[in-house]
Design a protein around this nucleic acid. Structure first.
Lengths: 149, 149
DNA sequence: CCTCTTTATTTGCATTTTGCAAGTATGAGC
DNA sequence: GCTCATACTTGCAAAATGCAAATAAAGAGG
């Protein structure tokens, strides 16, 4: 079997650079981390702080502060959840939506660019493969949470 | 076309968690970033500081300090390059090699675990697809191109 | 050999990010 | 009510970051 670690490492590094680019264009002045937060908030129904933090693999305290910054920048809104007022529901403001939409477009065009170097068949195969890999990783909880820790 | 950004984001997040785990086991006390540095140094012939920094998409000044830390931890060696003594060649010490080898084994077993949830055919398809994606990204000058690898 | 420019790396410093511990606020069970 | 669990925030101190400037070694032109 080929050296998977190397292949994956190369891939994630390149994707990382891709992500970096997305946020340093035009007048947009947010970090990569922040762009991911906007993205995740936009994709979930009434997400709480803890949910998104866990999703992103971040410490809750760190994330709480990042949210604070985004609230101050008027990109994100915190709304107490009526049924349990300890919980803060996150949502995007109009401005947050707009920036998120714009970044999404830019990222989309990057990916389109990348995929334009493949045949239609290859494109489909690659996408199916990534989904397959995702599923396989989802099934492998034990490797991501070793008991010895 | 499926939402590629979402698929890729999910994938890289999971890989990120995988990487995080690798370094907090046994008596090993290095960060994820450091493990990647060891890995890249081990995979290149006589790499300079600048080369690895660029490869990892890091600011040279930041990387210079990270190297310093690793030198102090006796995992990495800096050797002036004879033909141009401004350049520092990076290499792993015996201890650095050993830790890198160990992490590599652990990561390898993680990947083996993940791939065990697929058929042999799927495994091959996925690996070929990742390589294909890498090549496609390499061709896309616009965004994601570190040298080498 | 002496300057001027370029390149590779380091250092100073100020800002940002991080995460643990401890805090506040709310909810649930008895 | 009292106690415990949960969701989030804050205090701090350590670490990571990046720009500007310093150092150090080449290289070019005279």
């Amino acid at each position: 079997m080929e050296n998977i670690r190397e292949i994956v490492q190369t891939m994630t590094r390149r994707i990382g650079l891709l992500n970096k680019n997305c946020c340093s264009i035009d007048g947009i002045d947010i970090s990569v981390a922040q762009s991911h937060i906007l993205y995740e908030i936009s994709r979930h129904r009434q997400p709480s702080i803890q949910q998104i933090a866990e999703l992103l693999g971040l410490d809750v305290t760190t994330f709480s502060r990042q949210v604070q910054t985004l609230v101050e920048a008027e990109l994100v809104r915190k709304t107490p959840y009526p049924d349990d007022r300890r919980i803060q529901i996150l949502s995007l403001t109009e401005k947050g939506e707009s920036i998120n939409r714009y970044i999404d477009e830019v990222m989309g065009s990057y990916y389109q660019d990348i995929f334009s170097h493949m045949t239609t068949f290859e494109q489909e195969t690659v996408i199916r493969s990534l989904m397959l890999l995702n599923e396989a990783m989802a099934k492998t909880k034990q490797c991501c949470n070793p008991m010895g820790s």
